[in-house]
Design a protein around this nucleic acid. Structure first.
Lengths: 337, 337
DNA sequence: AGCCTATCTGAAAACGTTTACAAAAGCTCT
DNA sequence: AGAGCTTTTGTAAACGTTTTCAGATAGGCT
């Protein structure tokens, strides 16, 4: 691989001059500039990023730490971040913590060692070790999706409470009077907020409900939705709608309903939460409370970029609204006679 | 951030000694080792990866260049690669080319500049510029999923022809005697292989068929499946099964069939190809010819790692078999009277 | 010609590691 | 005590950039 030295030699100039034309910094005469450029061309020179990072003390690398890369929500998130940052000349290092605090901390150290210029992290929330690593290395971070009050950092979140309210309201307005709610996790703040929002709407309109809370954290979301729906439907035959606090959970619930011979939405309405793309592919397509995933990623990246370089920045807290995506899995309840 | 120098100072030893204990290389007395380790601990030292890369002339970074990160197939692929390489102490730099040759080439240069130790690439196939960049920089690559005969490199592929044959055979054995095939792209070698395999099976068993080939490349796979199914069903009312050469295309076809009031699989069987996870979530769950996605990623990573460091390696060509995932979207044709 | 400025160029020092080499220190033996 | 080892340690030179600083060159004046 050609280095700046080779170029200097071939062009008959000094290292400094080469560096200057490569970076468009300082003054260099048109003649020399042309020679250098020619040499760059013939040698097919590509600057050595590690060397440059070492000297410049910046890597133009951003760490993206998410709980699961293969989950459609986080996949889309990573994708939107990648797109935004690419345009700004940054690359991303994706790390999938697998919902495991150990792995999360390990990955964080890796990012620190890599000297990323910043990081966007959707924490597992199980542990805060990782944040100390970033803090100690003085690496700016932006929290995304999952709120952790203890961590001081900018954050961009979704208004989960409002989403929960909105979702429940949708079902109420359709005419449902007995609604099942399937929560996806007992410990996640986001889930609690969604649940509280939904409950508020139900109270406000004086509608009956049942809540299913998972006992253990270990279950996969799909299975959880499946079992939750089965259990709710068995014990509460008058339920006419299910509000699953996660799309994947909602899909599990859909399968459970079908397995019981119920038709959706005629006999049972099902509402999800997240707005992942695959929901649109289902039959019937899933009505859902959509998070602005793309925007979440872009805003986080934008805020992060602003805080890189600054020594002291104020923390921004951005809360984005959810949106009801009315598709085919919800409708007015069937009249029972 | 603490450097090796700070450690040396605090521990009262030389830089070389610190480096030696950090890397477990060379001999160092237990006493000094302990002092160094203590200093590392108190200073919370994290090695500077760029500096290390510069000196060692290796980055432990692997580029992963895929056409679309948000496509479930490639998302899963990236994920499986990430997992495998993490265990081996490598990180990945994911790049999503967006099915755009320009972007692909641009990303390649980026990876070269980053001095990745190797790359796994699923080429868009539109152009070969990228491969020249890697070759010139002497960076080993492994081709995955899409075969490009012109590129000299190891590759791990799926036996698309056999998958096509297997899929058609499945439908034939169910009793279908008039089968529609929806190809997803006219130019992709993989699609052609799948198509040829399917046609062979149809000829071998003397079964009638219709093929739909997209005219332009621009359509999204889902829309393509939708329109293809609509067109086939309109012109060929005796079709009892559709074989879509891509899962997402199959999903489009499913929606089209439902929109025509057909029930799946009773009135129309639908078979996909890829084995993406979301197929299992559909109702009815999609029967498909599954690619061993996880294995594809792991094997590619494994082969790549073997060739890093070696100056001259033989090229490996690995061809993995597909597998029929019998789910709910195919069945024997309904008897018509 | 001589001086002053403005412009351009190059030598050399950094950035944080690893490593070849040499120096030092500890042995064992005569 | 010193020779001849082996083991442990330190010094200094790389790796490929960027950047400071001083030096060179050229032009415009008197």
């Amino acid at each position: 691989m050609a280095t700046i030295k080779d170029i200097a030699q071939l062009a008959g100039v000094s290292l400094a001059t080469v560096s200057r034309v490569l970076n468009n910094t300082g003054k260099v005469s048109p003649a020399l500039r042309a020679q250098v450029l020619a040499a760059v061309e013939t040698l097919n020179y590509q600057p050595n990023a590690p060397a440059r990072s070492l000297r410049r003390r910046e890597t133009r690398l951003i760490g993206v730490l998410i709980p699961q890369l293969n989950h459609p929500f986080f996949g889309t998130l990573a994708y939107s971040i990648e797109r935004f940052l690419f345009a700004e000349g940054f690359r991303i290092l994706v790390c999938s913590a697998e919902e495991d605090a150990e792995r999360e901390a390990e990955y964080t150290q890796l990012l620190v060692r890599q000297r990323v210029d910043g990081a966007i992290v959707a924490p597992t929330g199980l542990d805060l070790k990782w944040s100390a690593h970033f803090a100690h290395a003085n690496i700016p971070i932006v929290l995304i999706d999952r709120n952790l009050p203890e961590v001081v950092a900018s954050r961009v979140m979704v208004d989960n409470w409002q989403g929960g309210y909105q979702g429940a309201l949708h079902l109420i307005e359709l005419g449902h009077r007995h609604i099942g709610i399937i929560s996806a996790s007992r410990h996640s703040q986001a889930m609690q907020d969604r649940l509280q929002g939904a409950l508020q709407a139900l109270h406000d309109h004086d509608v009956a409900y049942e809540v299913y809370q998972p006992s253990a954290e270990t279950l996969q979301q799909y299975d959880l939705g499946f079992h939750a729906a089965l259990s709710l439907l068995a014990h509460q035959p008058t339920l006419s709608a299910l509000f699953a606090l996660t799309d994947v959970t909602a899909i599990g619930a859909m399968h459970a309903a079908v397995s019981q011979g119920l038709s959706i939405p005629e006999q049972l309405s099902i509402l999800g939460f997240d707005g992942i793309e695959l929901g649109a592919y289902l039959i019937p397509a899933l009505t859902t409370i959509a998070q602005p995933i793309e925007q979440l990623g872009c805003k986080a990246a934008e805020i992060l970029l602003k805080s890189i370089g600054r020594t002291q920045t104020t923390q921004e807290h951005l809360i984005l609204p959810t949106q009801l995506l009315k598709r085919a899995s919800t409708s007015a309840p069937m009249r029972k006679e």
